[in-house]
């Protein structure tokens, strides 16, 4: 099926009837996913937004439950459920792959995080393939096809003037069914997207096992500022902190994004901090991206979107790290984990 780019806007208006539709847009100069409505002009020309779409599933500050004292003086806890029907229209294949990583974290291993699970069920993902890539994109090297997203509900492959519509899940088929007014029959060839940046990932995971005390981390972390920019613009970073807002007797407990780069992230009450210096934190972050997550869930936590390469104040570049690791002559010690 074909969807002509001209009738994107009427399609969005029809979809936005009962639901919140989020589209990539520039709001006050910041490229992020904004609620489609008046005053928001979609920016589908953007290769990718600065702020990742993880904000829809895992908001930066999310109220978990409200507690207050009920009639007979006992504490009462009432959960918030702010999840509602949402559509993210125009998400890119690399961000779709990041949603797979977030699903693994929040929905598996013995505990299902119901805040994330509720939001995830009610989210319809319409992924748009990339016809052109930015200089910092390296998704193909991380196993992501710029024109395909297997776990998206609907895949719109960019074919120049039109999109090729592929409904990939029952939910997607149901949605495409009522797109009849905008879609016509026919087929089109998706535009091949060449990436200027590529890294060689094979062997890196195993090599990292033996590199824990290698000076490579020293040279890398010495120039890092330890700010939280890379973790907050990264689509797959999922660390959070839990705290509460009080108002005399009642209050709200919320969870909010946290960054492994902050100094008090692992600071214990007794004053002991297992990761006191920049070296341990930077090493932990990149090991988590390239090795730890792979060992635990079997997929890399870096999807190659290039946001951290783009936004790092000191241009500390994960692709150069991968190249340096490749160049290291440490014999890969395959750890049987």
């Amino acid at each position: 099926m074909i969807l002509n780019k001209k009738n994107l806007t009427p399609l969005l208006e029809s979809m936005a009837a009962g639901r919140d539709v989020f589209v990539p847009a520039r709001v006050d100069g910041v490229a992020k996913f904004a609620l489609f409505g008046e005053g928001v002009e979609c920016a589908f020309d953007l290769v990718n937004t600065t702020m990742p779409p993880k904000d829809l599933l895992f908001p930066q500050t999310q109220k978990m439950y409200h507690f207050d004292v009920d009639a007979n003086g006992n504490y009462r806890i009432r959960e918030y459920d702010e999840s509602r029907e949402q559509v993210v229209f125009g998400i890119r294949p690399c961000d779709m792959r990041s949603i797979v990583c977030l699903d693994e974290v929040f929905l598996t291993k013995g505990f299902v995080d119901e805040f994330y699970a509720n939001a995830r069920e009610k989210l319809l993902t319409v992924c748009i393939g990339c016809a052109s890539a930015a200089e910092t994109c390296f998704c193909e090297s991380m196993g992501v096809d710029p024109q395909a997203a297997p776990n998206a509900d609907i895949m719109l492959q960019d074919c120049g003037e039109v999109y090729r519509v592929l409904a990939q899940t029952p939910k997607g088929e149901a949605e495409v069914a009522n797109w009849a007014a905008f879609v016509e029959e026919g087929d089109a060839e998706p535009v091949a997207c060449e990436l200027s940046l590529a890294v060689d990932m094979d062997g890196v995971v195993d090599k990292l096992e033996g590199l824990y005390d290698h000076p490579i981390w020293e040279n890398l972390s010495i120039k890092c500022l330890n700010c939280g920019t890379c973790t907050y613009v990264c689509p797959t970073c999922h660390c959070f902190d839990i705290s509460q807002d009080m108002r005399r007797k009642d209050g709200v407990r919320f969870r909010c994004w946290d960054s492994c780069m902050f100094s008090e992230y692992t600071m214990m009450a007794g004053g002991h901090n297992p990761r006191p210096e920049k070296l341990e934190r930077v090493r932990n972050r990149f090991m988590h991206k390239l090795n730890f997550f792979e060992r635990r869930y079997g997929m890399s936590l870096c999807v190659g979107c290039g946001r951290c390469v783009e936004k790092c104040p000191v241009a500390l570049d994960i692709t150069r790290l991968i190249d340096d690791i490749g160049a290291c002559d440490v014999v890969p010690v395959a750890q049987a984990e």
Partner: peptide, 23 residues
């Protein structure tokens, strides 16, 4: 718009407290 990543604090040569009030 601020996402509180503290890059402005970490790059500033005037911001050199041992323990910032934020931490």
């Amino acid at each position: 718009k601020c996402i509180r990543c503290y890059a402005c604090r970490d790059v500033c040569p005037c911001c050199t407290c041992r323990e910032c009030f934020v931490d």
